[in-house]
Design a protein around this nucleic acid. Structure first.
Length: 497
RNA sequence: GGUCACGUGGCCGAGUGGCUAGGCAGAGGUCUGCAAAACCUCAUACGGCGGUUCGAAUCCGUCCGUGACCUCCA
């Protein structure tokens, strides 16, 4: 199996990946909080870790990919909360949390499918694992690292930090944090401001509540990931992923909880993707610059000049390394759209090309160069999942493909072996690893027959040098979004926007 | 305020000591009835200053600028 190296956020360096169980990988990724619609920012981690699972599978690993749905905590739907107060208490008019959660979970799945992200192996929900979370909290309390106040349970960070390396993942020093005074509301009951909630007492108006040894309440934000990851992947598992903004406090807290509950660190390799920004600012509710996925795909948002196809967005994300910030702009998306169209067309051309079967290449130098570009893709991916470099190599190869088709060079410049490698590389990378799909949906048979008729008429007109007719057909089709192309061999093909 | 990143040509974006990144846009050319596409060729770069080195976009220092986290956050 090819060696794989990637950046481990915990140690801040690239490390060789060695799974706990040879041939198997346990991967946990923090999923969405389904109290609102997914936005462009959410696309990044799930596409990033889709690539990770796809590449691990390509290398021959069997991957168990666990991605949670956070459906517990404070929930409020815009507009409805206020409405709630004045409306009658009829059951149907009240905000039903499960309804809300279900709605946004479905929307999230809809987005993931359009992005062609593979489904996780297990997608556990926080509300489905209340028992496991309570049990874990009890263990932590029994070991003396959590305390109860007024029906809430807090993790004792100060005590933990005295005995364990707290803050290593996020590069924080507890003393600095305690000194840094920030105004916090209603946190008086914690012994230290760095402590975090494992369980929260539910005030009377809180709608999501469960019975617990400490009264009715709901789980803290961090405990669900610890409880569910250990349940499905074991007390120590291979890779934990998520957005960089989750490093602190979420992931730092996960480490602390699990370390106490299990007696050892939960994760071997931490991976964090960087943020998507708009005009240099992170996309987020608090910045008021959120583009929802539905808006992105429909173009229905003031910032958007046009709709963007999910595959274009995916390609745009993959053109940048996952640890770099990625700034959104219409210009960038449009550039990606053109680039992707070109690359995918080269791929389609390549799959139709045939090689004479001659073993020896007529252009040894080019043959060697092509083989090198192909083989480098594995190297690039095995060096911290560098999709940007892989795509660059695919672009290096596309003129060769188009030149073979256009007749500028003959397929025999490559050996049969290299030609096959080229075809295989494009297929493996574009489809299997990068997970791309064509922008165009398969045409219906009937439409194709109509197009063939128009193409015949145009061909005939051109033969008669009736260019007025041939141009009319081409121009009107173009206006309707159908591009005709006169190929070198006299055939005419078409593409539909 | 504390901590940590980043600053690459018109735009996006790879790249960590010497070897063309790539894409989009732009210029010229080939092909074409014309076009589109494709192909060929080309220009523009590494925030400022100082240092290390035979050699730095790449290492070190410093200054400037931007951002992230410290509060829910992908």
């Amino acid at each position: 199996m090819q060696e794989l190296y990637f950046y481990n956020s915990y140690n801040r360096q690239k490390e060789k990946f060695e799974p706990i169980t040879p041939g198997y990988v346990g991967l946990y990724v923090c999923g969405p909080t389904v109290s609102g619609e997914s936005h462009l920012g959410h696309a990044r981690p799930y596409i990033t870790f889709d690539i990770v699972t796809r590449y691990l599978q390509y290398l021959g690993y069997k991957v168990r990919y666990v991605r949670n749905i956070t459906d517990a905590g404070h929930f409020e739907e815009e507009g409805r909360a206020a409405e709630d107060k004045v409306s009658s208490k009829a059951q149907l008019e009240k905000l039903e949390p499960m309804e809300l959660v279900h709605k946004y979970t479905n929307l999230f799945h809809w987005g993931m499918r359009l992005f062609n992200c593979e489904d996780p192996s297990i997608e556990p929900t926080a509300t489905g694992h209340i028992i496991e979370q309570i049990s874990m909290i009890e263990t932590i309390m029994a070991r003396g690292y959590a305390y109860e106040i007024n029906g809430s349970v807090y993790f004792d960070v100060k005590k933990y930090a005295a005995n364990y390396p707290y803050g290593k993942l996020s590069g924080r020093v507890l003393d600095d944090m305690l000194e840094t005074t920030r105004e916090l509301e209603g946190q008086d009951e914690k012994r230290n401001k760095a402590d975090f909630a494992l369980w929260k007492n539910a005030p009377p108006q809180h709608i999501m509540r469960w019975k617990s040894p400490w009264g009715e309440g709901f789980p803290g934000w961090h405990i669900e990931c610890s409880a569910m990851s250990s349940k499905y992947l074991g007390e120590t598992f291979d890779i934990h992923g998520g957005g960089m903004d989750l490093q602190f406090p979420h992931h730092e807290s996960e480490i602390a909880q699990s370390t106490i509950a299990h007696g050892h660190a939960p994760v071997r390799y931490w991976m964090h993707n960087n943020m998507i920004t708009i005009n240099g600012k992170k996309m987020g509710k608090s910045y008021n610059n959120v583009i929802k996925l539905s808006e992105l795909f429909s173009g229905n948002h003031p910032i958007l000049e046009q709709p963007y196809h999910p595959m274009v967005v995916r390609f745009y994300i993959l053109q940048t390394h996952y640890r770099s910030t990625l700034d959104f702009s219409n210009e960038a998306l449009q550039a990606s759209e053109k680039a992707f169209r070109r690359l995918w067309e080269a791929y389609e051309v390549l799959q139709k090309l045939a090689h004479s079967g001659n073993g020896a290449p007529t252009d040894k130098e080019l043959d060697a160069q092509v083989a090198k570009w192909c083989r480098e893709c594995d190297e690039f991916m095995s060096d911290d999942f560098n999709t940007a470099k892989v795509i660059a190599n695919l672009f290096e190869l596309s003129p060769i493909i188009n030149s073979i088709k256009g007749g500028q060079i003959n397929a025999d410049v490559l050996s049969a072996e290299t030609f096959a490698l080229l075809q295989q590389t494009y297929k493996s990378y574009l489809e299997d690893i990068l997970g791309m799909k064509p922008l165009q949906v398969e045409q219906s048979n009937k439409l194709d027959q109509v197009m063939q008729l128009l193409i015949e008429i145009r061909k005939d007109a051109r033969t008669r040098k009736d260019f007025a007719t041939s141009d009319q057909i081409r121009n009107q089709l173009a206006a309707a979004g159908v591009q005709l192309k006169d190929e070198k061999d006299g055939t005419i093909t078409y593409t539909i926007d």
